[in-house]
C-alpha cells in the first residue's frame, strides 16, 4: 500500500536576517499510511511545527520532496486534501459559530443548502449544535477548539493536520478533548491525523505511531509504534503498556537532546 504522506530527504533552512541561516529540518524521511494517527513530538525548536507546515505547503522546503495523497504538497493544498487546526482556534470574531464552520465551504463554492447541512452535521459531531448562533468569544477555549476541528473537517478532507491544538487548554479539558478527537477520528473512516504536541502522555494516548524529533538541527530520532488496544479510554492511561511506551518516548526525547 502506498503511503498517504511521503517525505524524502527533506531539509529546511531559514535565512536569518543577518547572522547566516538556521537549519530547522535536516534530512527527514517519513512515510505515513492512510488511517494512522501520527504524533510529532519533540522539545521546542525541534522543527515539528515547521515539518507540519511543510506538509501543508504553508512553508516551502529548501530541498527534498513531500508527497501528499499521491501528489506534490502544493497540488494537495490546491486540491484541499487536508484540514488544518492551529494552536489557538483562529476563529473569525465576526462570524457566528455556524458561519465559522462554513468558511472553507464558502471558499470552496459549496451551494448554500449543502453548506448549512455539512456545518450543522459537523457541529453536532463536536457536540456544539446548540451554539451555532453564538459568537466565538461567547465560548470557552475548549469549545472554540472543537469548533475549529469541526471547521477543518467540514469539507471532509482525508488528512487532518493539527498543530498543538490543545496546548493552551487546562489538563482536564485537554483529556476530554483527547477523547473527543479519538471519537471523531474513529467515526470518519480512513482519516489520517498528524498531531504536533509536546505532551508525552497525549502523544502516547492518542497515536498509533509517535515520531520523536530532536532539536538543532531538527532530525528524526525515532519512530515508536503504539500498539495500545482501541478504543482507548481512561483505562488506557492505567495500563502497564501505557507507562512503558511513555518511558520509551521520554528516553527517545532525552537521547535526542544529548546528541
Amino acid at each position: 500500500m502506498t503511503p498517504i504522506i511521503s517525505i524524502q530527504n527533506l531539509t529546511k533552512r531559514f535565512q536569518g536576517s543577518d547572522s547566516g541561516s538556521v537549519l530547522a529540518l535536516d534530512n527527514i524521511n517519513l512515510n505515513i499510511e492512510q488511517g494512522e494517527f501520527i504524533s510529532l513530538i519533540g522539545p521546542s525548536g525541534c522543527g515539528k511545527s515547521t515539518l507540519l507546515r511543510v506538509i501543508a505547503d504553508l512553508i516551502q522546503p529548501t530541498s527534498g520532496t513531500v508527497t501528499v495523497n499521491g501528489k506534490p504538497a502544493p497540488q494537495a493544498r490546491k486540491d484541499r486534501d487536508y484540514g488544518m487546526v492551529f494552536q489557538n482556534a483562529t476563529l473569525y470574531d465576526w462570524r457566528t459559530i455556524l458561519k465559522n464552520v462554513q468558511l472553507p465551504l464558502e471558499i470552496m463554492n459549496y451551494p448554500k443548502p449543502e453548506r448549512d447541512r455539512r456545518a450543522r452535521e459537523m457541529l453536532s459531531l463536536v457536540e456544539l449544535g446548540e451554539f451555532e448562533d453564538k459568537y466565538p468569544w461567547q465560548l470557552s477555549g475548549g469549545m472554540q477548539q472543537r469548533v475549529s476541528i469541526a471547521r477543518a473537517l467540514s469539507f471532509e478532507p482525508k488528512i487532518l493536520l493539527m498543530d498543538e491544538p490543545f496546548g493552551a487548554l487546562d489538563e482536564m479539558t485537554r483529556e476530554r478533548m483527547n477523547n473527543e478527537l479519538l471519537r471523531i477520528w474513529k467515526s470518519i473512516k480512513g482519516m489520517t491525523v498528524i498531531f504536533v504536541t509536546h505532551s508525552i502522555a497525549e502523544a502516547v494516548y492518542l497515536s498509533t505511531k509517535v515520531v520523536v524529533l530532536s532539536p538543532r538541527p531538527g532530525r528524526l530520532s525515532e519512530i515508536i509504534d503504539i500498539p495500545l488496544p482501541q478504543p482507548r479510554g481512561s483505562a488506557t492511561r492505567e495500563m502497564d503498556d501505557f507507562f512503558h511506551l511513555s518511558t520509551r518516548v521520554r528516553n527517545a526525547l532525552r537521547f535526542g537532546v544529548e546528541l
Partner: peptide, 19 residues
Amino acid sequence: RSLELMRSYAATDMEIFRK
C-alpha cells in the same frame, strides 16, 4: 495564523481580502 488558515484552503487573494 488567520492568513495561514486561508492559505490552507487555497483561497484567492480576493477571498482573503473579502473574508
